[in-house]
């Protein structure tokens, strides 16, 4: 399995990194918090950790720590517009339940 970006997501990540002026790629991950147990992490990466796993998608690096990988393996990160709102969406096959807003989830 792996982690992937859609083309739209990759393009937006590229734009964000260019605008920021620095960064290796983006980090996907999970942490335990929120109303349904876990929440996604989506951050710029300046420094890789020794046991990080790196995937590449449309030329963009996606970086994940091994603990998080178990929960989001197979996830596709998409970039979508909903009305005038826009942002990233995790299509995570492992999720069994989400809180109403989808900001946190459980597996």
């Amino acid at each position: 399995m792996a982690i992937s970006l859609t083309e739209a997501a990759a393009n937006h990540v590229r734009r964000s990194l260019e605008n920021r002026g620095s960064g290796e790629g983006i980090r996907l991950g999970v942490r335990t918090t929120g109303c349904s147990g876990m929440a996604y992490v989506l951050e710029f990466v300046d420094e890789l950790q020794p046991d990080d796993e790196v995937f590449e998608s449309f030329g963009m690096k996606v970086i994940i720590d091994p603990k998080s990988l178990a929960y989001i393996d197979g996830t596709e990160l998409d970039f979508v517009r909903e009305g005038i709102n826009e942002g990233f969406k995790f299509n995570n096959p492992n999720v069994r339940g989400e809180c109403g807003c989808g900001e946190s989830f459980n597996v």
Partner: peptide, 17 residues
Amino acid sequence: MALLQIAEPGQSPQPHQ
């Protein structure tokens, strides 16, 4: 579901916050 934005390292917001 809520749409996420890329945060600065270590600055990911808490859900709903």
